[in-house]
């Protein structure tokens, strides 16, 4: 059997109130931070060097915002299809620490027409196990 993508190819039919399948990632480890540093190119030592982080007054190293922003972005693409994401905007509302377990949520807030296309306005979030949001996000997706 040849491989195939689990991601939607055609635009989805979505309605206001529809939700992204909630998923979790974690517990977060320092290895996740280091792996993303290598992939994304963020070598700020506050994310991988314990001595540097503690000398800067942090209890330990913490994750780059673009790591959990990227994790949410992958889930957005899994939900609506990578060809149909028109915009994605994230606001950082809290840090992510080692051992955190992250939950990813998304919801359709509005459906509209623009330039002959049907677009969905989405709200998304990354939530820590404490209930605190680490990211609040919005996105626009082309839908069918």
């Amino acid at each position: 059997m040849s491989a195939s993508t689990a991601l939607p190819v055609e635009p989805l039919t979505l309605a206001v109130g529809d939700e992204m399948t909630t998923s979790e990632f974690g517990p977060m480890t320092r290895s996740h931070f280091v792996r993303y540093a290598g992939a994304g190119g963020d070598f700020n030592p506050i994310h991988h060097d314990e001595g540097f982080a503690t000398s800067a007054g942090m209890p330990t190293v913490f994750g780059m915002g673009l790591l959990h922003g990227g994790l949410l972005g992958q889930r957005l693409a899994q939900w609506v299809g990578p060809a149909h994401v028109r915009a994605y905007r994230i606001r950082f509302t809290g840090q992510v620490w080692p051992d955190d377990v992250l939950t990813f949520t998304g919801r359709v807030e509005n459906i509209r027409e623009e330039g002959g296309e049907k677009l969905a306005d989405l709200s998304l979030a990354v939530i820590r196990q404490t209930g605190d949001p680490a990211i609040k996000a919005t996105a626009v997706a082309r839908v069918g």
């Binding site: 491989a3 993508t5 996740h32 290598g38 992939a39 994790l71 899994q78 990578p82």
Partner: peptide, 26 residues
Amino acid sequence: KVREFARSLGDRDPIYTDVEVARAAG
């Protein structure tokens, strides 16, 4: 780099590694 980036975000969908899968998806 695309493979490494997707994997660092826990995404193992073959669309990020297999050109035939990507072409089949348009």
